[in-house]
């Protein structure tokens, strides 16, 4: 119950940022309708959406590091619970952003798409989506952990932690798709073992959440 109340606060904190999650798929949809669709269009949109998701996912953490938030720190809750709430919020962000991306991708595939000229094997879209979701989840978990550790750091460091992983995720994954000749080995793994990757990432997410909670409890928060 208390967790839900905390989650409500996290959503309040991020309410303006949540617009990003909705805006990106809409832009994606608009862009798709203008272009000739290829097999990867849907994935690209999803990656864009997850990029937005990763940025928004850590807003509750970042807001907590801002100076004027003592009110929330002093709420009568057990230490560590607010960290769990932030992690839950991140997972929700990835789910919502990825889900919206998937939706747009589906619309794109209904409109018809051509197979990849670059990849020789058969494409397993479900596996690729699983992989993307899983890796995005892992990235947010790492961000959350870093923000838990660095909570008293300077604003610049905090901004870097917020933005950098999202960019690494986005440029890394789109680069992977665009340079298929050199990265086909990695691509094959993602294409064939999506579910396993997702499960590993989800478990790591839970482990990192537990570690962050431990850190918070040790600090008495």
């Amino acid at each position: 119950m208390t967790l839900l109340k905390l989650l409500k606060i996290d959503i309040k904190k991020a309410r303006w940022n949540l617009m990003i999650l909705v805006t990106i798929p809409l832009i994606g949809l608009a862009v798709l309708s203008e272009r000739e669709l290829s097999w990867s269009s849907g994935i690209f949109v999803t990656l864009y959406c997850l990029f937005g998701g990763i940025v928004v996912a850590v807003v509750p953490f970042a807001a907590e590091n801002a100076e004027e938030a003592g009110f929330l720190e002093m709420l009568p809750v057990k230490p560590g619970l607010s960290v769990i709430s932030h992690f839950t919020f991140s997972a929700l962000c990835i789910m919502v952003s990825g889900g919206l991306g998937l939706l747009v991708g589906l619309i794109a595939s209904l409109a018809g798409s051509s197979p990849s000229p670059l990849y020789p094997g058969s494409l397993n879209l479900a596996s690729l989506y699983d992989s993307a979701f899983g890796v995005a989840l892992l990235f947010t978990a790492i961000e959350c952990l870093l923000l838990t550790i660095c909570r008293y750091n300077t604003l610049q460091v905090l901004q870097l932690i917020r933005i950098l992983p999202a960019f690494v995720f986005f440029f890394g994954s789109t680069g992977l798709l665009q340079n298929m000749e050199t990265t086909s080995a990695i691509f094959r793994i993602l294409n064939e073992n999506g579910l396993v990757i997702f499960i590993i990432c989800a478990v790591s997410f839970a482990v990192l959440a537990a570690v962050s909670r431990g850190i918070a409890v040790r600090r008495g928060r």
Binding site: K13, A63, A66, E68, A69, G70, F71, L72, M74, L75, P76, V77, K78, P79
Partner: peptide, 19 residues
Amino acid sequence: PVSYRRQIGYVGDASYFPK
């Protein structure tokens, strides 16, 4: 921790509410 914090009313020298 829960009852400890519920018993206290704290007013700081600067606003502690999220801006």
